[in-house]
Amino acid sequence: MDASYPLPDLVAAAQGGDQDAWDAIVERFVPLVGAIARQHRLSEADGDDVSQTVWLRLVEHLGDLREPAALPGWIRTTTRHECLRVIAVRGRTRPADPQEDRVLDGVVDDVAGDDLVAVERRQALREALAELPAARRELLLLLLADPPVGYAEISERLGIPIGSIGPTRARALEQLRRTQALLSLRDPGEVPA
């Protein structure tokens, strides 16, 4: 069981005590938790604390989770809330104008707007990638590899002719655009609760 399994299956298995399913849920959402912590300008150490708290809370919450589709929203809300708590406990986490005492107001302003949309779009793209059939996902990941992987090596690794890499890439991207993850974030200004 890995991060490409449908979320309801992962949640059900994790509720039954399956560590692999839990690890897959972590793999899927740990970048989102980190992105939200960065939006809040948390230090790395505070980001670690928030992340760990979110996952420990999810372990407690898992049994009560009736609707797996609610999980991403729960993770977002809990992460934002814990970021604000840590900011309140630790005080200022970034240089601020001493004349300006509106710590929390400032943070709320920071996270509004385009940043939030960009975070959600990156999460949607990762989830879309997980929805693709394994062969297509692997091709895209190899094409995105840093440092780059040559076509000859991709051809060898995936067992497909070099000449079909380009057309397969195009088909994979077309399929990516039609994934549930991208379709549900169709409106560019939309931010899930």
Binding site: V30, D48, S51, Q52, W55, R121, R122, R126, L129, D146
Partner: peptide
């Protein structure tokens, strides 16, 4: 960018979550 963000998650954070 999306894949890089996932790759940038520190191992310690992933391990703690697991």
């Amino acid at each position: 960018q999306a894949v890089a963000e996932a790759g940038a998650v520190p191992d310690r954070r992933r391990e703690a979550a697991r």
